[in-house]
Every structure is written in structure tokens, then in C-alpha cells.
Design a protein around this nucleic acid. Structure first.
Length: 944
DNA sequence: GAAATCACG
DNA sequence: GACGTACGTGATTTCC
């Protein structure tokens, strides 16, 4: 080819600014206009312009914007995009500035009345392709992925600048399981809640791509439906055919729009600096301005963007002061990292860390379980691309190679200890609880620490889903740094081929490990300032951050379990399960897998002909507890046998077998791992094993609790908050009757029964209890009707009575929903936010689900805040009362479990009770007292 | 890997 | 008038 290949870049401007808006802090320019999204947009154009001379960079470039909200799609389907909320108030004034920014770069900006940006992009892309040009669409919109591919050597691909990812055929196939040409068919089946494209109800991305991949097209898949075997899916395909066909039209891009400007005119050469510098100056983008002057990327961080006024926080002010825009950082360069193999170099890094006062730290180990992991190496980062990896226990990469040169583990640890313990050097981790536990096992204490995972949780709980509850490092790096770090899989492989990190060659190990510290350092710079701006400092500084070492210590303490007792129970359960199985086969008239709900349903309702079999979404009979209990009442002896079988199987597999496996061989105790970011409301969760769901409600289950025991000469002490959520509801909704009952120490469910039904009997108290919980969980007449086994009308009457007798509740619900609808998040009394991205969903079930969760979150979350505050204060309080031998072992949402010398019980009980009762103070003064029940015994069961 | 089930607050 | 019905979790099993 004689001529240079032309390459047209089409920038999807509209979708970009929405994403930029959500991931950047609310900056304003010197005039006070919000410009956060504009800033993001400007840096993105800058990056593209930087590629002008690159081999595959743009020769032509245009920005495409949405002009009107109405398009031909609305004529086909009036509901199209109907559930789009209005753009936020501080985004709206930024739209015109986007055009200004584009003009400042002297780039063409294209928009047409009645056409969506996607259609213009499709038209331009095809036009350029026809002329033999390459095309790159700068967007991450999945609809546009239909266009990807090559015609006569001219290819169309996509670039997601936020993730720095090229998207071509393999990426599309990975995402949709089909070639780009078939993406439209998949989209038509699955629908799109954002654009309000119906698709087929109940068909999601998985099912859609499977169907299209199997049948080759939407039409073929729909045509095949009548021949499918009977299933919910079949029904839905048959019923939803028209919806799918209309959706197919809606997702089809219009490739033959009239084009406002020929592509030849989009050629770009060098960006003239005059208009650009004027624009940058006007909006205070001084770091970019400086780069313009020096003509290159300098890592300069200072600029004078003004932060939007921080919310009133009443904070200690540790984060007050000048806030800066996200620092400009150079791209991650893995070749810049150092492998530290001599003591000289290690000393140099330790000294630099002390001088820097802040250092990101990451440990590499042999296991995800902190209580078993061997330390393999440590990485440090002091700035972007200023990071190192210190290998400590790397072996040869195969049998023939020698162990690489490295500092002995103990020597290196001793050299790092002063820095890690230095109170003036902040150590930043991503999930620091893990590193703290690993290091503690090598007798290293680390303080003070910061944790980017927790910072992210306190800013964005509820906003993302994914590993670490949306706060894992890879996800944060993608979201905030536009960078994909090397994944563990890439370095260590997966499945059978996986190797321990200690066998990764040092150059590769350094790239991975040092990058993790580098990314953590960058995330900290990016996220920490947001806490003060967005009002998260209080809960982070006073609750979650100080909690990290406390929970880490609880995990290390572990709890003793009586293995012999568990083994005895396992054996007993096994015998009983076997006996029940025989009886069940007898009653069924055949053998089958009792543990298979599918087979059980068929036996019960098809073979034995019991009435009332209801099939759920998947076309399968439901056989859960409530169904079996009803059958048992209708004189079906097999139902009771299955219920018993289920109970025992559950107890055996989940508890008596699994807990024996969980005993740590080194400590002979069970060490759970608490997730600090697992529950959106701020609660902890417990895994490996889960010690927050040990049986208590049945006598047979409680035998498992008997296996949780203290060491010789000690006792277990359990302290739990009595009715804490109802107390908080009484305070937060300001309900005098309830507050009065709590003040007088009455039984709250009895009082509710008296108010509701006039008299207190076993029955009315039980109903009242159900209603009280229903209120906490966000009530619906059908939900309550189901629980109380009454008609929905009657349930509605009870709700009305409840609202009348306890005025305040109804108002609390309405106010909470109004605020969450407005702001997108709920707040606890201590300022913890939980986001509800689906609160405005057009899908009623989805929206109502969010509403119920939003009613509950402030109550459940405040309760979590309170017990967390108690945990933070507990050990210092005990220590100051000379109770240093009391160990805090477990937290179960409203309960703390301790192990202590018998002689300490009386004194410790007082301290524990006081700390728990006063945990809300002084930040919040409740109108209701908090009450604590305390028990002690020689097992967890006996302590209740 | 999803769905069903069931253990807890 | 239909949707599918209480909030928040984690572990195990079966089945595709």
C-alpha cells in the first residue's frame, strides 16, 4: 500500500460524560460551575490527541453527541428509554461545556435532531469502512459492539478509555458468546433495563447468548421454541415472541442516516494550542495547562481546581482543607519496579518509606487463608511507578533451577519492623486485615494503617457488585484508575496448572507484586480525598478504620471446638439419616435421591399424587419447608420424614462434618474470616467457616453449640443487644408508644399485641412479633398475609392499625423513601451510606425490592455501627480495668462472645455491659435505652 | 455456575 | 391489572 491507512476515531461523547460524572469527585471551576465530568472528558480527549502520531492512532476524529431524547425508536415503542432519570443537577450545566471542550481541541462535534449518537456512529463507521478505512469507536456501549469486524481489510474495533481496553471480536465473543453480527439478536432476547428494552421476561444475558449461540439467530431460536420440552423458558419464549421481535428492531442501529459532515473533513493534524490553553485556563485545569507548556506528560500533581463544598459533617476536621482534583499520574509501568535482593537496597527502601511518611504495602503468600499462609514476599510503593518487591521465600521455578538470590525472611522482617511499627509512617493496604494477620503470625505489628478497600466501601457501598462486594483491587483499579493490573491467574495459572506464588520467576513476581502496591498507593490518593468531600470521614475514621485491627485479632484468637463431640454427632446423624432414607423409600415405593428437590417434587406430586404442588420459575415443584409442613398437616407421613432428613443432613454436612475440618492444626482452634465489606448495610459477614449461623433455634441444632467451648479454667461469655433493631426503629421513627415501652422495660411484642389486639395471649403476641419484624423489613400486605396465614385484606387492616397505634412509622417510611429517591443512598445515624442504584427502576419488582431494602438499611446499618463502636472500645476498656486476659472471639450481628478466666466473670460482665450500652455515645444520644443480656457457661450453648 | 434449600441475626 | 412478596448474609447439594 502506497498510501497511509486512514483511521477514523468516533468518540461517543454522551455516554462518556455520564461515566466520567459518576467516577470523578464534584469539582468546580473558579466560577463555581461544576466541571468534574468536563475534566474527565478533557483528559480523555487529551489522551486520544497524544496518539495522533502513533502507528495505529487516529488520522481522522469526530465526537458524536446525543441531541434530543426523542428518536425513531420512540415512535416504535413509546416506553423506549422512558425510565431514564433526569440527569443530576450538577451534571446538566456540564453538557454545553462538553461542546466547548471539543471545540477547544478543534475537533468536529456532530449531533442531529432525532438521531441517537449510536446511529450516527454506526452510519459513519460503515461509510468509512466502505472507503477502506479502519475505524475505532471510543465507547463501551454494548449496543455498538454489533459493528465490530472486518470488511475487505477495513476493520472496526472499539476502545474503552476508562478501562484502557481494545474491544475486538474475541472480547465480544467473551462477553456475549456470539460473533458481533449476532449481538443484536442476543440483546433482543435479554432486553436492557437501562434503555427499557423489554426483551423476553426472565431471559437474562446467560440464557440469551446460549439460545442464540445454539440456534444461530433470534428467529431460529424463537421458531424452535414450540419444540422445546415443557419449561418456563419455553412458555416465555412463546409468549414473548412479539416483544423480542420489537426489541430486535429497537437494538438495530440505523446505518443509513443522512450524514451532516463528510468524513474527509474530519482529518486532524496537530491541535492548535491557542483555543485549548484558553479553555484550560478558564476552567482551572492547570495541570493540563502546564503539560501543554512543556509539551509532555509531567507527573505534576498540583492544580487549583476547587472542590465542591463539602457536606456539613461536624467532623474533627482531619480531612478539611484544600482538596485537589484526582492527581495526574503517569500510566503504570511494570518495567519500572525494582526487585530487592540485598540488605543495602532493603535498608534504602525502609529509609525512604520513613521519610515519605506514607507507604503502600502488600504481602504475597502461599494461601488465601491468612491463618495458614506462608509469607513469600513483601512489596512497597512510595509513589506511582515507584515500587519494589522483596522476595523472601521464592524457590526455584523447576527442579533443576537454583533458589534465586534473596534476603532471608527473618532478616528482612527485622529490617522492616521499625518502619512498620513507626507511628509516624502510615501503611496503606488493600484489605489490610489479611496482611495484618499474616504479619502478626511472624510477630510483626503494623500501625497505623489505612485500607483502600474499606475507604471504597464507606464511599460506595451498594454501588457495585463483584469480588470483594465491588471493592476488590482489580475492580477498583478498573473503575478509578482505568488500569487493569496483572491478575493472579495470569501469573500463577489456574486449576491444575496453578503454581504457588513462591514458584513464580522473580521478574514476573516483581511485576505482579509491586504493581499491587503501586495500584494501592494510587487508589489511596484517589479515594481518600473523596471521604471528606462526600461525607464519609466520620464513619471511616471512627468506626471502620479502627475496627480493622480489632477484627484481625478476633480472627487470630479463634474459638475452641470439641472435635469428639462433633464426631459423635456426625455419627449419630448419619445413622438417623440412613434410617430415615429407608423409611422414605418405603413410603415413596422406590429409591431416589432425597436431596434432590426435583426428584422429590416429582415423587410427591406426580407419583404419590399429593395436591397443591406449585411450580416456580424454573418449572420445578417447590418442596421447601413451608410446603412440606403443609403436606404433613394434610396427613402425608413422607413429608415429616423428609423434613427430618433435611434437618439432619444440613446439620451434618454444614456443621458437624465441616467444623471438624475447619480446626486449624497449628492452633487447634477454629478461625473464621470476617468480611468487612460483604454486607451492603455495614454488617460484618463470616466465612470459612461461617460462625454467624451456628444453629440455636432447635434443640437438636443446639447440640452443635455445645461443642464450642472454653479452654480449661475459662468460661465463654455471650453478651447480646436485646431487640436493638426495634429500639432503633422506635428512636428513628420517633414513636412515643414504643419508646415508652422500652423505657419501662416492657416486653415489646406483648406491648404491641396489647396495642393492636387489646389483649395479650400466646397467639396475639406471636402475631405482634411477626408484624414488628415486617415493619423493620419494609412491609407489604401480601408478605404479611403469607406469614400470618390470613387474607391480604386482613393483613392490610393490621398494617393500618399498626400505623395508627404507632404514629411515626408511616412517616419514617415515607421520608426515608423520599430521601433515598432523591439522593440515591440511605444513611445510618452515624452517617454510613448505602446506595440503591435500582430505587428508580421501571421494573416494579426490582424497585419495590430496593424500597424495602432502603427502609431496612438505616436500621440494620445503625445497629451494625453501634456494635462496631463497642468492639473498637472493648479491649482498651477491659485492659484499663485490669482485665487483660479477657479475649473477644466472635461477633454475631447483635452479640459478642468472649473467653475469660472464671474469676474475671463478675468484673468483666460489668465492663462489657457498660461499653455496649454506651456505644452510641457521644456521637448519638438515643431516646431509648440499649439493654444487654449476658450469660456465661462452659459452652456457647450454656452461655445463652 | 445457577438454583434450591436452610442455617443465623 | 400484573408483577411476586420481608431485610441482611454463607454453605451445601444437585443438576445442566
Amino acid at each position: 500500500m502506497s498510501e497511509q491507512q486512514q483511521h477514523l476515531y468516533l468518540v461517543d461523547g454522551s455516554s462518556y460524560i455520564f461515566r466520567a460524572y459518576h467516577r470523578l469527585p464534584p469539582l468546580t471551576n473558579p466560577e463555581g460551575t461544576p466541571v468534574g465530568a468536563v475534566y474527565g472528558y478533557t483528559t480523555m480527549l487529551w489522551k486520544l490527541a497524544d496518539d495522533l502520531d502513533a502507528a495505529d492512532g487516529p488520522t481522522h476524529l469526530a465526537v458524536i453527541l446525543d441531541k434530543s431524547s426523542h428518536s425513531f425508536r420512540n415512535d416504535i415503542y413509546p416506553e423506549y428509554k422512558a425510565n431514564r432519570p433526569d440527569p443530576p443537577d450538577d451534571l446538566r450545566p456540564q453538557f454545553p461545556l462538553i461542546r466547548d471542550a471539543t471545540r477547544a481541541f478543534s475537533l468536529p462535534c456532530i449531533e442531529e435532531e432525532g438521531l441517537e449518537a449510536d446511529d450516527l456512529i454506526a452510519t459513519y463507521a460503515r461509510e468509512a469502512q466502505r472507503q477502506g478505512w479502519n475505524v475505532t469507536i471510543v465507547s463501551s456501549d454494548k449496543d455498538l459492539m454489533q459493528l465490530i469486524g472486518e470488511v475487505d481489510g477495513a476493520r472496526i474495533d472499539m476502545l474503552d478509555t476508562m478501562k484502557s481496553a481494545r474491544i475486538y471480536i474475541p472480547e465480544v465473543e467473551e462477553k456475549f458468546g456470539v460473533k458481533p453480527e449476532l449481538v443484536g439478536d442476543v440483546l433482543a432476547l435479554m432486553g436492557d433495563s437501562v434503555d427499557n428494552i423489554p426483551g423476553i421476561y426472565g431471559v437474562g444475558p446467560k440464557t440469551a447468548s446460549k439460545l442464540i449461540a445454539e440456534h444461530g439467530s433470534l428467529t431460529a431460536a424463537l421458531d424452535y421454541a414450540p419444540e422445546m420440552k415443557k419449561s418456563k423458558l419455553k412458555e416465555r419464549l412463546l409468549e414473548g415472541r412479539a416483544d423480542a421481535e420489537m426489541s430486535r428492531v429497537l437494538v438495530t442501529l440505523k446505518e443509513d442516516c443522512d450524514i451532516p459532515q463528510p468524513i474527509d473533513e474530519m482529518r486532524i493534524e496537530k491541535i492548535p494550542e491557542g483555543p485549548l490553553s484558553a479553555f484550560l485556563e478558564q476552567h482551572g485545569f492547570t495541570s493540563l495547562l502546564r503539560r501543554l507548556g512543556t509539551g509532555g506528560g509531567s507527573p505534576e500533581r498540583a492544580n487549583n481546581l476547587h472542590p465542591a463544598k463539602a457536606e456539613m459533617e461536624g467532623d474533627t476536621g482531619d480531612d478539611e482543607g484544600n482538596r485537589q482534583a484526582p492527581p495526574e499520574m503517569p500510566a503504570v509501568d511494570r518495567s519500572s519496579y525494582e526487585t530487592v535482593q540485598t540488605m543495602d537496597r532493603l535498608q534504602a527502601w525502609a529509609e525512604r518509606a520513613i521519610a515519605a511518611r506514607i507507604v503502600a504495602v502488600d504481602t504475597e503468600t502461599s494461601s488465601l487463608n491468612a491463618m495458614q499462609a506462608e509469607l513469600v514476599g513483601i512489596s512497597l510503593a512510595l509513589g506511582p511507578n515507584d515500587a519494589c518487591y522483596i522476595p523472601l521465600a521464592h524457590g526455584g521455578t523447576d527442579l533443576l533451577s537454583e533458589t534465586p538470590e534473596q534476603i532471608a525472611r527473618d532478616t528482612a522482617i527485622e529490617a522492616l519492623k521499625p518502619m512498620l511499627a513507626d507511628p509516624s509512617v502510615t501503611k496503606v493496604f488493600q484489605n489490610g486485615k489479611y496482611d495484618l494477620n499474616v504479619l502478626a503470625r511472624y510477630d510483626v505489628s503494623v500501625s497505623p494503617i489505612e485500607d483502600t478497600m474499606i475507604v471504597s466501601f464507606d464511599l460506595d457501598a451498594g454501588r457495585g457488585e463483584g469480588m470483594g462486594g465491588g471493592h476488590g483491587m482489580d475492580e477498583l483499579s478498573q473503575r478509578h484508575l482505568d488500569h487493569t493490573p496483572l491478575s493472579f491467574k495470569e501469573v500463577c495459572g489456574t486449576g491444575k496448572k496453578q503454581i504457588p506464588f513462591g514458584e513464580v520467576p522473580l521478574d514476573r513476581a516483581t511485576e505482579y507484586a509491586a504493581e499491587d502496591a503501586d495500584v494501592t498507593w494510587r487508589l489511596y490518593q484517589h479515594l481518600k480525598p473523596r471521604l471528606a468531600i462526600e461525607g464519609g470521614s466520620k464513619v471511616y475514621e471512627r468506626v471502620d478504620r479502627p475496627l480493622i485491627p480489632v477484627v484481625a485479632q478476633m480472627e487470630r484468637e479463634g474459638i475452641k471446638v470439641d472435635r469428639a463431640q462433633l464426631a459423635r454427632l456426625s455419627e449419630e446423624f448419619a445413622k438417623e439419616i440412613g434410617r430415615l432414607e429407608g423409611e422414605i423409600y418405603e413410603l415413596a415405593g422406590q429409591e431416589f435421591t432425597v436431596g434432590s428437590p426435583k426428584q422429590l417434587g416429582e415423587i410427591l406430586f406426580d407419583k404419590l399424587g399429593y395436591k397443591g404442588g406449585k411450580k416456580g420459575k424454573s418449572g420445578q415443584y417447590s418442596t421447601d419447608q413451608s410446603v412440606l409442613e403443609r403436606l404433613a398437616g394434610d396427613d402425608a407421613p413422607i413429608a415429616n420424614k423428609v423434613l427430618e432428613w433435611r434437618q439432619l443432613s444440613k446439620l451434618k454436612s454444614t456443621y458437624t462434618d465441616a467444623l471438624q475440618e475447619a480446626i486449624n492444626p497449628a492452633t487447634q482452634r477454629v478461625h473464621t474470616s470476617y468480611s468487612l465489606t460483604g454486607a451492603q448495610t455495614g454488617r460484618l459477614s463470616s466465612t470459612d467457616p461461617n460462625l454467624q449461623n451456628i444453629p440455636i433455634r432447635t434443640a437438636i441444632g443446639r447440640q452443635i453449640r455445645e461443642a464450642f467451648v472454653p479452654e480449661q479454667g475459662n468460661l465463654l461469655l455471650a453478651a447480646d443487644y436485646s431487640q436493638i433493631e426495634l429500639r432503633l426503629a422506635a428512636h428513628m421513627a420517633d414513636v412515643d408508644t414504643l419508646k415508652d415501652a422500652f423505657a419501662k422495660g416492657e416486653d415489646i411484642h406483648s406491648r404491641t399485641a396489647k396495642e393492636m389486639f387489646g389483649e395479650v395471649t400466646r397467639d396475639t403476641r406471636a402475631r405482634a412479633k411477626t408484624i414488628n419484624f415486617a415493619i423493620l423489613y419494609g412491609i407489604s400486605r401480601w408478605g404479611l398475609a403469607g406469614r400470618l396465614e390470613v387474607e391480604p385484606d386482613e393483613a392490610q387492616d393490621m398494617i393500618d392499625t399498626y400505623f395508627k397505634r404507632f404514629p411515626g412509622i408511616q412517616r419514617y417510611i415515607a421520608e426515608t423513601l423520599e430521601i433515598v429517591g432523591e439522593r440515591g443512598y440511605s444513611e445510618t445515624l452515624f452517617g454510613r451510606k448505602t446506595w440503591f442504584p435500582r430505587i428508580k427502576s421501571k421494573n416494579q419488582a426490582e424497585r419495590q425490592g430496593s424500597e424495602r431494602a432502603a427502609i431496612n438499611a438505616p436500621i440494620q446499618g445503625t445497629s451494625a455501627d453501634i456494635i462496631k463502636r463497642a468492639m473498637v472500645r472493648m479491649l482498651p476498656a477491659l485492659r484499663s480495668e485490669d482485665l487483660g486476659n479477657v479475649r473477644m472471639l466472635l461477633q454475631v450481628h447483635d452479640e459478642l462472645v468472649f473467653e475469660l478466666p472464671e474469676g474475671d466473670v463478675a468484673k468483666a460482665s460489668q465492663v462489657i455491659e457498660r461499653v455496649m450500652v454506651e456505644a452510641a455515645l457521644p456521637a448519638v444520644s438515643l431516646d431509648v435505652p440499649l439493654a444487654i443480656d449476658i450469660g456465661t457457661g462452659t459452652s456457647w450453648d450454656a452461655a445463652h
